[in-house]
Amino acid sequence: MIVSRLASGALLPVGAFLATMLAVPFLLPNPYYLSILSLACMNAITAVGLNMLLGFAGQISLGHAAFCGLAAYATGIATATYGLPMWGSFLLAIGLVALVALLVGMPTLKLTGHYLAMGTLGFGIIVYIVFNESIEWTGGPSGMVGIPRLALFGHELWEDTEYYHLVTGVLCLVLLLSLNLIHSRFGRALKAIHTSEKAAMCIGVDIARYKLFVFVLSAVYAGIAGFLYAHYLGFIAPSSFGFHVSVQLVVMVVLGGMCSVWGAVAGAFFLTMLPEFLRVFENVETLIYGGILVFCMMFMPQGIVGGIGTLFRVLRRSFRPEAVSAQTGEERNG
């Protein structure tokens, strides 16, 4: 019984999320909102990966926007400059990101704490400089134009709704796979590394390998997001993949709640949409933005999802004090 609940455990919430997302275009037939939500989905894809790295394995990266950028530029150059087909370009971009993550991860993941942050920060800055300086490839600071819209089975996704469906679908797929991974021996190993590397290795976890694995996986997620981004806007510039974007991705994960994959989604949606809602405040926009962040961190140290979870638990406990013991008994029988 527990097993069947587990199997459906990830499908159910992801399915509900997908249904909600697909309902939005009907409720809000506004292309502007749809484009914001599409961007939020892409950010969420990166954030879910970063959440596994940061929230589950406890390893920080301050250079993840660079992986988005690498995939975006790779596919931009491959399709716009060399006319590669979309699927080939996808494999090329993701392969490149995975390879670079492997090469960056091998030395940097031996570092811990601040050093790892510094290492990935340096990597992000180097990539940013390369985007700016290799003008004949990337167009330099002014960016790269003419990247074709994504085509699926020969059909170009010109409609914003179509693209919205695509990124929502990809996000849900990423979510499903990530939730499955977290609820496996690999997820437990990552969490073990987070709390005690000593204990993790003594139960047989190859720490270096797992750190590298989750780093590469999170980079691949970022690469997927970068790929979708490039073929969505048709235009990319280095500033979309700079240091402040990397930091923003980390804030999404922390703000959303590090202990849950859903936290990354919540954080990504919140931080992507917030500036749009605050636009009406004009001059004091940044001030309010900062204020909201500070407020969230002060009153929801477990993040948005953690805060809601705590509230939910408190409510449930006050209504059904026997809930915990009943659940445990069920566990034993299962």
Binding site: R188, K191, A192, H194, T195, S196, K198, A199, C259, E331
Partner: peptide, 9 residues
């Protein structure tokens, strides 16, 4: 060295 980010199980 308990993994405090997990349940007992």
């Amino acid at each position: 060295e308990i993994f405090t980010n997990m349940t007992v199980l």
